[in-house]
Amino acid sequence: MDRDNDPAAIGGASNEEEEEDELELESEPALTQAEREKRKERLRDRMKVAVARVVENEVTARTDFRVEVSPVVVSALAELTSKYAESLARDLESFAHHAGRKTVNVEDVLLAARRNPDVKAVLSDQAKALTGQQQPKKRKRPGLKALPGD
């Protein structure tokens, strides 16, 4: 899993760089197409590291049947995640605008997950944990283990 960027490196070194990105983006909203693509490319690389870690975690969590994941699959999943995130961004924007808002909030994300009740349930639990301090009983759910069709 460490064949692309070492996951351990993300905590320390990349932090600074990221803040720099943020500042640039804030101060200079008019980016050229090329700059934007370059930036996206870098974000995709970041996402890939995160995907690799999630995959690793998922595989090691399995106790019944040990599997490995081929690097091609990790790359494909990273690509999928980036594409999905971009389409998610457009959805969320549409939802927020439809509600007359310019800020995406938790409800928009829940709406984005409307097609899968199980995913939605997990996310609502998380949303409650995030927003409502008045119900501290539900902290988190470690993960989604079963979906219909499994």
Binding site: V104, N105, V109, A112, Q126, A127, L130, G143
Partner: peptide, 15 residues
């Protein structure tokens, strides 16, 4: 919160 939740959605997708 919305961003955190979006991260979780992506994580669920990969998982």
């Amino acid at each position: 919160h919305a961003l955190r939740l979006s991260c979780e959605l992506l994580r669920l997708l990969i998982a």
